[in-house]
Design a protein around this nucleic acid. Structure first.
Lengths: 193, 193
DNA sequence: TTCCGAAACTAACAAACGTTAGTTAGTTTT
DNA sequence: AAAACTAACTAACGTTTGTTAGTTTCGGAA
């Protein structure tokens, strides 16, 4: 049994939910609409899931955990800080391309988590940002980066990456590697000649 | 009567609607919730507005037109292309700080416009992006910018600016001028030392 | 073939939704 | 003073929402 992932109906529902939430937003998406895409009746979905909220929760925290793990892995590598930042840029793009819908939901619909989960989510996100900010700070200390405002740099980088979700289509004919290279180049070296 | 703007109830509803839509999303916001914030009954609002959709429409196109006008004004100025881009960055930040809620609605809830208005909105946005892309292209031709991928540069800049909405608070103690300067610096010159 | 549990179905619920209708009090216009 | 207008109200409308209950279908194990 070497990593043969069983495709459960639950997984199908989650996948379609991510797509639907991205298209209509969590509030605008209805369970009947989702059920139609899955190919069963709305009521039947409750044999596989607990609630609409549970779908959102699983999407947000599932993706969130992936980000955390990847960042930790990169941080442990023995490479320079600019290389680490570039690795972060590359894996953000990879995540967005691999799991576009779920990443979009994480970015846009986390505010519909119930209050307890929302607090947890915000804590997770804060920690992630802190972790990334630390990489920038150390890079500055070592003289690898300019003496920039760390918060501004952090959010400029994170935000630059978010648009990939809105923009990237395979049809545009630019590979994810080239995209990562181009974005890295601009953020690292700017646009001015 | 020198520019004495009368504060109509309609204007109050629009202002509160922008705030509410930002908080809960267009789908998650209810007319009863909005009415409560305005201080009247939900039904009473219909003496001042036509529908919930109309609120969204007015917010999106009102802000959209402001962006268009400002960009045109900057383009007409006799300054260099890097200076024009920096001016665009400054006014985006200005817009976000002055009209945070409405800008957020434009960015996140335009997809809830009815189909006709959505087409119009997308056309407006495409034109705006084309206009801005042309500024970058000309800057490259003149040798003022590196030979970068114009689309990547365009969206990296636009996306970097969007996060200001999520991040900026007067309480952080950084002025909008300083913020514009720092963001400009990173986008123009990068982070690498 | 029989049996059983999983997974589908139909029907219905209560709550919430945007909106309309009808009315009333207060103000402005004629 | 009469008429018209403004802006608020209460009540209710017809839908749509997420979800539950009860029933049927169906594939695989005994």
């Amino acid at each position: 049994m070497t990593s043969v992932q069983k495709i459960t109906k639950r997984a199908i529902i989650l996948k379609e939910a991510a797509k639907l939430f991205k298209e209509k937003g969590f509030g605008g998406a209805t369970m009947r609409d989702l059920a139609e895409r899955v190919g069963i009746e709305a009521a039947s979905m409750y044999n596989h899931i607990r609630s609409k909220d549970e779908l959102l929760e699983e999407i947000c925290f599932g993706i969130g955990r992936k980000y955390d793990e990847q960042l930790s892995q990169i941080d442990q590598k023995k490479i320079t800080y600019p290389e680490k930042i570039e690795a972060v840029i590359a894996f953000h793009i990879q995540m967005i391309i691999e799991d576009a819908n779920a990443v979009s939901v994480l970015n846009n619909d986390w505010k519909f988590l119930n209050s307890g989960q929302m607090i947890e989510f915000k804590a997770m996100r804060n920690e992630y940002e802190k972790h990334l900010a630390a990489l920038i700070s150390k890079g500055i200390e070592q003289g690898a980066f300019k003496k920039i405002n760390v918060s501004v740099a952090l959010f400029t980088i994170l935000s630059s990456l978010r648009w990939v979700e809105l923009w990237y289509k395979p049809s545009r004919g630019i590979s994810k590697e080239d995209l990562a290279k181009d974005i890295s180049a601009i953020l690292m070296n700017g646009v001015k000649a």
